[in-house]
Write a protein that binds this DNA or RNA. Sequence first.
RNA 1: GCCGCGGUGGCGGAAUUGGUAGACGCGCAGGACUCAAAAUCCUGUAUGGGCAACCAUGUGAGGGUUCGAUUCCCUCCCGCGGCACCA
Length: 784
Amino acid sequence: MAYNHQEIEKKWQDRWETSGIFHAKDGSEKQKFYCLIEFPYPSGAGLHIGHPRSYTALDVVSRKRRHQGYNVLYPIGWDAFGLPTENYAIKTGRKPQDITRENTDTFRRQLKSLGLSFDWSREVNTIDPAYYKWTQWMFLEFFKAGLAYKTKQPINWCLSCKIGLANEEVINGKCERCGGNTEKRDKEQWMIAITKYADRLLEDLETVDYLEKIKTQQRNWIGKSEGAEIKFPIPLLSKEGLGEVADIEVFTTRPDTIFGATFLVVSPEVAQKWIEVGWDASESVREYIAVSLKREEMDRTAEGKEKTGVDTGVVAINPANGKEIPVWIADYVLGGYGTGAIMAVPQHDERDRAFAESFDLPIVDEPLVPFDEAVAKVGGRKKTNYKLRDWVFSRQRYWGEPIPLVHCDVCSPETGGWISVPDDQLPVVLPEVDKYEPTDTGESPLAAITDWVNTTCPICGGPARRETDTMPNWAGSSWYFLRYIDAHNDKEFASQDKLSYWMPIDLYNGGMEHTTLHLLYSRFWNKFLFDRGHVPTSEPYARRHSHGLVLAQDGTKMSKSKGNVVNPDEIVRDYGADSLRMYILFMGPFEEPVPWSLNGLIGVRRFLDKVERYVSAWDESKIPLLSKEGLGEVAGIVERSLKKISDDIESFKFNTAVSTFMSLFNEIVDNVVTREQLKKILVVLGPFAPHLANECWEKIGENGLVEEQTWPVFDARLLVQEEIEMGVQVNGKARATIQISPTADETTAKQLALAQEKVQKHLDGKEIVNVVYVPGRILNIVVK
RNA sequence: GCCGCGGUGGCGGAAUUGGUAGACGCGCAGGACUCAAAAUCCUGUAUGGGCAACCAUGUGAGGGUUCGAUUCCCUCCCGCGGCACCA
């Protein structure tokens, strides 16, 4: 390899560090640019080769913006609470705090070795009490606003993590984190009322620039549907044995089809409630309910379209036409959505039809009535439902932020005895424990530390108990971007002045897997803070992009068990950070998953060596007279290439930006460019291969850092090509090329084309019936 | 099942959004340099035919629109991602 990457990378990294050139400036007059990557979870495995994909891409954008004169904030930190560390602590008997410190040290070293232009002076860590003080403070804001509430309700319980999960964390009935089975359990949980924000989370998607697929996923997840709730009365005669059950309310998005409703279906959950209020159901009905309820969510969907159900014997009256219709129980109706009961219209709904056919229920074809008219006629009311559920916010685990509440048996009955820890007592510091094991009773290990749990009531001073649940790791990551803005402020989470200057985030990149978790939670969190007057913008992220996975060489996911993990340390050591940076951008379209290829990386390294050789051999005195003033063909090539690279950065086409660099050097390798041209090239190369660009900059005798130079302004005259090679077609088939000005007229083009032997050959003996000429693009001669 | 994205050489992928398909890189083959190797450089590399110039075919399959289609429309096949009995 031609240049010593280890030497020069160390050299320039040290220069960047001592110069503080990547520090964002507070109180600057300049226009700001806030560029954000999802801060990593510092796992024991170290940096994954996929991390640099996102980080390098945004590093390129950040660096370009600095060249363009922006005051750039490109920060970094650690999302360090979470289960893997806790589980590792249990396994090894070590403290999660110590493990985390080691892991963050590793990550920090690895990230620095890549030459990323992070502002390290603003590093944050969610496990730092100075940080989670504000996470707790924000939780109390939710609590004070009535949006955090404790309730006993069925939640998703992961059997192996022994932890309650939010809906978003359960994938096909499996735990999102460990892949283990989940079941429904009734537990007291802190909830945050994200559903109150469902409409705004949905509507405000219109105001932000996210990739369309991200918006679509969020819309689906929120799952708004507009319909009506309609009561189906139960005739007096039929009421016997029903206890307190009065009528059946259903939710439907199609009240216009109500004349076709030939039966009702209630969910097992609703049926169970009927029994609780005195319904004297038959043995077989009771059994069906019991079996359905026991089945986990997963089974209920796993059986697909095979529908089960049981007739209740109860009848209801269709309020539209007064007809008596039977009421069934079936588990294809979900207890947790709408009213837990539906009107079945087999004529218009596939599922209802399937059910009707299985159980021989009537299917009738009745005319539709206008939506509003139908609702009014049957005394229903319009209702909007969402699939989005409130956010399960407590975890019965150690390694998270303590929920800063105490319970007093005497005070504050309106909140169930729960009282905020006063601001001056924040943070509630996570106490050290001996055992991190979760308990099967579902209590956090914190519950065992009696001298921590037992405290005094902030109101009456009497005995009180601390909440022992901790927060999910989505808490700290819901607002970290705000803390970067004022990372060392010990009076506020960030000052209003700085927030006003820096927010919103101009560009945020992360994984698609966070679209319905982190991205939705943090939008909600920010909106809430906005409503409380704590942040200046309703939406935190003006633009959101996402990157594809870096796969193993064979196209599968990298995994330790398969032994196909690429270690970034080895790549940086053997081929250099610049090679890794440029290769990872070059390997494929940014949003697509791409397999890793060591040979591909080596190819990029060859290119960098070529650049280094070119610059080393560059000698101004050898510039041919003609191009001394920076004119001529080479000048155009340089100008157009750099312009294209500059544009590609804006549209996230980093792969073609890199290939344009390669083409550019292929073209100039036998020419000597002028000093001004070479300087431009090095400035544009800087964001991609910053170490080498600086080394070359120094080599040609320029002062200062590449990072201090302004982005080139492209000369419009050089961007237009005087003459291009244009294709000539005969009957739509390419037959020849001509050298022609892109603005030449048709007569000229035709003359040039007809002078071509190859064209003549295909015209021979034929009659020209048409000529299509698109200047600068194509000339097509149509013959018969 | 529904929604979204995609299918291009041996491989990763380009194609100014309707205008010479295969840029750039990898791999492979041949050559130069070398005692030799590595590195580097040069040449070639979609497929079929031909020594060659060249000819024909070609962007998952089939059809259509057009002077011209990888790009637009219709039907179908396959892959990936998301949602999944949400009434």
